[in-house]
Simulated scan of single mutants.
Amino acid sequence: MLVRDAMSTLVLTVRSTDTLRLAARLMSRHRVGAVVALGTDEDGGERVLGILTERDVLDAVGSGLDPGAEPASAHTTTEVVCAAPAWPLERAAEAMTRGGFRHLIVLDGHRPVGIVSLRDILRCWAPSGRHHADLGG
């Protein structure tokens, strides 16, 4: 199975000047754990700056920062590993395990086309139709 088979094609984005509150509102409304942060490249076009996760928002709020005033860019992880749609899911899971993160931005060239999460991968690998009790738990 490939990343394209597991990824969510809903790619929510925030600009570097948007607030943490806006990012949190988007994630909550769409029930996702991450948004792609966009910035401007030297030609004036958009480029991926990184990823902002629910954990980043929680850490900021837990530190006493005001989510309505705090810019998303100050909490965006910019050193990210991105996946390609044609990666095998094993490669994506390996990258997540090695990097210690739960989301990968999926790029087609330089354009974000999806996000794959650990939950997406588990959903693909879990036996369908089986309940926790059936798995010996």
Rank of each mutant, 00 (worst) to 15 (best):
F101I: 03
E42P: 11
P112F: 05
T97C: 10
V14S: 03
A133C: 12
A93F: 10
D56I: 02
T78A: 12
G50Y: 00
G44R: 10
P71K: 09
L22M: 13
S128M: 13
R119H: 11
G68P: 02
G68T: 02
V80I: 09
T17A: 12
R98L: 12
W125F: 15
T13S: 07
R25D: 10
E90R: 15
R130K: 13
D18S: 09
S16V: 06
C124L: 14
A84K: 15
V32A: 03
G137W: 14
G136M: 05
A95C: 01
S63P: 09
G39Y: 03
L12F: 02
D120W: 04
P127A: 15
S117E: 00
A133H: 15
A133N: 12
R21Y: 10
T77S: 10
V80P: 00
A84I: 14
M96R: 07
E94W: 12
S128A: 15
L65N: 09
D43C: 13
E79T: 14
V113N: 07
A93N: 09
M96Y: 06
P85I: 02
A83Q: 01
A60D: 07
A95D: 06
V106P: 05
L65S: 09
R4G: 01
T13C: 05
E70T: 06
I115N: 04
L118K: 10
A83I: 02
V57W: 00
D66T: 01
P71C: 07
D41A: 08
V61I: 09
G129A: 06
D18R: 09
P67D: 03
R29C: 08
V14R: 01
L58T: 12
R25L: 10
V48P: 06
E90G: 11
R31E: 10
A126R: 15
A126M: 11
M7S: 02
R102T: 02
R91P: 00
L107H: 04
L10Q: 15
P88F: 11
A72T: 05
D120P: 03
R98Q: 14
G99M: 11
S8K: 08
V80G: 00
T53D: 03
D18W: 07
H132E: 13
T77Q: 11
R29K: 12
L12H: 05
L49C: 05
S117M: 06
E90T: 13
A74R: 12
G136L: 04
D59G: 13
M7V: 06
G114N: 06
G137H: 15
L2H: 12
A37E: 06
S128E: 15
L22R: 14
E70D: 07
D59P: 10
R25A: 09
L107P: 01
L10H: 15
G33W: 02
T17G: 09
T17N: 13
D43M: 12
A83C: 03
G64T: 08
D59K: 15
G45F: 10
T76M: 04
G68Q: 10
V61Y: 00
H75Q: 03
T53H: 00
E94G: 09
A83M: 00
